[in-house]
């Protein structure tokens, strides 16, 4: 449950317009805040966007977060 709450919190940081999904432009907006390069954020998006449809859902985001925490895809 804590994982889901944290994941939702991070998702909302990325999804500022509360669209319900995250696109590449949303992640690029975080470039200065997160001190990550444009290329790194592109890679993050590619890794998280499991179905490669150009938008990240909360489910995909949570899967990536759990992968980061547990080292494998558990959701």
């Amino acid at each position: 449950l804590a994982l889901l709450e944290k994941s939702r919190e991070f998702f909302q940081i990325c999804d500022r317009e509360e669209k319900g999904f995250i696109n590449r432009a949303d992640l690029q907006h975080l470039q200065t805040e997160l001190s990550l390069s444009s290329n790194e954020l592109q890679d993050v998006f590619d890794v998280l966007d499991a179905d490669q449809n150009g938008s990240l859902t909360l489910e995909e985001f949570t899967t990536g977060f759990s992968q980061f925490l547990f080292g494998e895809k558990t959701i």
């Binding site: 997160l34 790194e40 954020l41 890794v47 980061f68």
Partner: peptide
């Protein structure tokens, strides 16, 4: 090699989520 790609992906994700975590903890 999927293993190398997997490891690289984990590193990218780790950077991203660690940054998000420190952003959260760094704010009041």
């Amino acid at each position: 090699d999927p293993n190398i790609k997997g490891a690289a992906s984990e590193g990218v994700l780790a950077n991203f989520f660690n940054s998000l975590l420190s952003k959260k903890t760094g704010s009041p």
